[in-house]
Design a binder for these strands. Structure first.
Length: 425
RNA sequence: GGAGAGGUGGCCGAGCGGUUGAAGGCGCUCCCCUGCUAAGGGAGUAUGGGCAGCCCCCAUCGAGGGUUCGAAUCCCUCCCUCUCCGCCA
């Protein structure tokens, strides 16, 4: 959520900036809503003020034994007036909240302006795609040939966009997440967290998935308004919800390995082959909670922490900065890390690292006490995949494949595989 | 599942129908004292919102309703925490 004060004072220039993000900000609708809000709010508050005063007078009059019937009549009239005003005020407030909660974050000034992913900018490229002496296969062919990747069974057990990973490949998948957790906790200073995989609606509101992206979430059929998490960003970031954290607690750095559940509602027909886009996948997620003036440094750190995994695994990748039109709802700036997939002859997203600045913090009421202003101010929150386990798994299969259909295990993973150096039939 | 207790400011903790937005303590900030990180004295210190701003106004004592001229205090519903018993991975 944007800073309300800022929006009120600078809605014209903010409206223009939001256009870059693909939102058509209706200026006159906002002006209209604001002027209604203002007059109703001040009327309501002054009526309440009169009522409060009268009630106090009644109290002291009664104490001194005076007659209060005149005052009672007055308070009756004010009370009736207040009732209708309060109703109107509640309505206009809800309208304002609904309006505000669907506005995306503003892009940082360093973010390139653009409409779609075509206008993202490559920042750096690391590693060279391997040249194969044979036609490299994609992970689906490799996995099915090994009999360790079963999409048919996934469909039987659940439906489309599910897979069953078996045997040595399942072990590889597990090894990858263990390596990531170990590197981030032991070498990058993250606190390991094992959060709930189910959260309530208020938590999803805090990180920005609700109310606008309800259709992407798996909503449980239960009276308690439960949702499956679409990413560990949700529970990890909300660790500071409703808190005023002490300066000494910052920065906080959390890492968690969790399943992620997504409906992929808007992606019919996209990435239907293979494991690229599943309803359930695993991810190792990194979250930073930091002081505002350190958040852009933290974004670089977080991104490099994610890159480190790709370097250890020897996978070629590139880093792109997303343009204004391609960024997620809550982000002010996002780096995507894309890994080379020989099966597709393409770089594909394997991590997305974002600085959300105070956008999520304002929704969550997550604050720190600024020693300069002595006031509570929103913290800055960042998140990034470190990395998506399923996609890392695919990348290893495709990049480390041999002509005979076997897969070499990257050296760093061998200890996590009980010494296995190659997966073969 | 059964039986109890409880949810108050950054934290701890009083208050149980009206000068209580909330005692007291801790913490924090400033000042004084003290020949130097101890002790003592004084002052200040909730959050959000209205407003260009305020010593002004409004809201907030888990959440939502209700009773009342007036609710942190009374009633109802829900959520959460703790203790004991039962059950269970």
């Amino acid at each position: 959520m944007l800073d309300q004060q800022l929006l009120r004072n600078e809605y014209k220039s903010i409206g223009k900036k939001l256009k870059f993000r693909g939102l058509d900000f209706d200026e006159s609708a906002f002006e209209n809503l604001e002027s209604r809000r203002k007059s109703i709010q001040s009327d309501t508050e002054s009526a309440r003020n009169r009522k409060n005063h009268l009630s106090k007078q009644i109290g002291s009059a009664k104490a001194s034994g005076a007659d209060v019937s005149e005052l009672m009549g007055q308070v009756d009239r004010v009370g009736a007036e207040l009732e209708t005003l309060e109703k109107q005020f509640t309505e206009v407030q809800e309208e304002f909240q609904a309006f505000l909660s669907e506005i995306p974050n503003l892009a940082h000034e360093s973010v390139p302006v653009g409409q779609s992913e075509d206008e993202n900018e490559e920042i750096r490229k690391v590693g060279e795609p391997r040249s194969f002496a044979f036609q490299p296969k994609d992970h689906v062919s490799i996995g099915e040939q090994l009999g360790m990747l079963d999409f048919q069974l996934g469909a039987t057990l659940a439906g489309a966009r599910f897979v069953v990973i078996r045997n040595q490949l399942a072990a590889l998948h597990r090894a990858i997440s263990q390596l990531m957790l170990d590197v981030h906790t032991r070498e990058h200073g993250y606190e390991e967290v094992n959060p709930p995989f189910i959260v309530n609606a208020g938590i999803l509101y805090g990180t920005g998935q609700l109310p606008k992206f309800e259709e992407d979430q798996f909503h449980l059929k239960d009276a308690r308004d439960f949702y499956l998490i679409p990413t560990a960003e949700v529970p990890l970031t909300n660790i500071v919800k409703d808190r005023i954290v002490d300066l000494s607690e910052l920065p906080m750095k959390f890492v968690a390995h969790t399943p992620c559940f997504r409906k992929e509602a808007g992606s019919y027909g996209k990435d239907t082959r293979g494991m690229i886009r599943q309803h359930q996948f695993e991810k190792v997620e990194l979250v930073h909670i930091v002081k505002p003036d350190e958040s852009y440094l933290a974004l670089e750190e977080l991104t490099s922490n994610a890159e480190r995994i790709l370097k250890l695994l020897g996978l070629p990748y590139r880093v792109v900065v997303l343009c204004t039109g391609d960024m997620g709802f809550s982000a002010a700036k996002t780096y995507d890390i894309e890994v080379w997939l020989p099966g597709q002859q393409k770089y594909r997203e394997i991590s997305s690292c974002s600085n959300c600045e105070g956008f999520q913090a304002r929704r969550m009421k997550a604050r720190w006490r600024n020693p300069v202003t002595r006031r509570p101010e929103p913290v800055h929150t960042l998140n990034g995949s470190g990395l998506a386990v399923g996609r890392t798994f695919i990348a290893i299969m495709e990049n480390y494949q041999n002509e005979d259909g076997s897969i070499d295990i990257p050296e760093v993973l061998v200890p996590y595989m009980g010494g296995t150096k190659r997966i073969e039939l």
